[in-house]
């Protein structure tokens, strides 16, 4: 805490030092307790998926891989994974195609209604999916898209298009507009400017946005649950149904599926975190002022 204060003042307040240490220790204990429990929740699923038999003990009686084969067969995971992959690729591609140009216009130009447009893009991120998911599913079912893969894709795009806009805007703002002007003065058309100037500079931002949209689509339960049919379930929805059915299958088999879901999601998350700050997942990016 005193890192921000000049060193000379620390000596003046020596009596309070131990309170600061106690406070710091409490903070770290609380954080440690929380993270320990989260680790426990993840570990319990992982250990259970490898457990041959696990009843009333700290650790299972033995380890086995067979639940993965069981889960693959019982939950027809090959179909689920193909559907998940197709839906994710479509959502990523379309949200980038719609979101990046919109972000470019918002980052580069001031125009009437700009604030209204920003609010329009913020709303789907603020309103929880389940609130607008039921009216959205009703509309999709009436247009015969409900229960199909395209219905799921459209529903997932509702939060991801605005998300791409908000992630890409700061990336675009930091590109010097004089680069585009210079290219134009030298005779490059809009198409050439996009391919030779903007695309290379935007590539890291687009990659980050695509990875974050992938993670969001893989873990988006509510919208996919409300709009999917039997052939268009993603892994997380299939996982929900298997937990919901409870005692029908061995819990290890459900946990094996849960581990596959975790590995999928966390893989893309770890890759994404190489490009972006974690706080960007919940909010718009802001550059952090350096504290000395």
């Amino acid at each position: 805490m005193s890192a921000a204060g000049p060193a000379g003042l620390g000596t003046l307040r020596r009596p309070h030092r131990w309170i600061e240490h106690l406070w710091s220790a409490t903070i770290w204990l609380a954080m440690g307790f929380f993270l320990l429990n989260v680790a426990g929740v993840i570990a319990v699923v992982t250990v259970s998926s490898f457990a041959s038999r696990w009843l009333g003990t700290w650790l299972p009686a033995g380890l086995t891989m067979r639940w993965y084969a069981t889960a693959w067969r019982e939950f027809s995971l090959n179909y689920v994974l193909i559907a998940t992959g197709q839906i994710t690729v479509l959502v990523v591609a379309i949200s980038i195609l719609i979101g990046v140009p919109a972000a470019y216009a918002l980052a580069r130009r001031d125009f009437a209604l700009k604030r209204a447009v920003m609010l329009l893009f913020l709303l789907p991120l603020m309103v929880p999916p389940i609130s607008y998911g039921i009216p959205l599913a009703t509309v999709l079912y009436q247009s015969t898209l409900g229960g199909t893969m395209w219905g799921v894709v459209l529903a997932n795009l509702v939060p991801t298009v605005p998300f791409v806009v908000l992630v890409m805007m700061p990336f675009i703002e930091q590109i010097d507009p004089r680069l585009e002007s210079a290219a134009r003065v030298l005779g490059a058309g809009t198409g050439r400017i996009f391919i030779h100037i903007l695309a290379p500079l935007l590539a890291p931002g687009i990659l980050a946005a695509a990875l974050l949209v992938t993670v969001r689509t893989l873990s988006m339960f509510e919208l996919t649950f409300l709009t999917s049919g039997p052939d268009s379930q993603t892994l997380v929805v299939a996982l929900y149904y298997s937990i919901f059915a409870g005692g029908v299958r061995a819990s290890q088999s459900i946990d094996a599926m849960a581990v596959m879901y975790m590995v999928n999601t966390l893989f893309f998350l770890v890759v994404a975190l190489r490009f972006v700050n974690p706080t960007q997942l919940v909010t718009r990016v802001k550059e952090q002022p350096r504290a000395d």
Binding site: V41, I42, V45, M220, F221, I243, T265, L281
Partner: peptide
């Protein structure tokens, strides 16, 4: 990590 994994997985765990 817990935000990304989502409510369904956290519930199962």
């Amino acid at each position: 990590v817990p935000i990304t994994l989502g409510t369904v997985l956290v519930a199962e765990g």
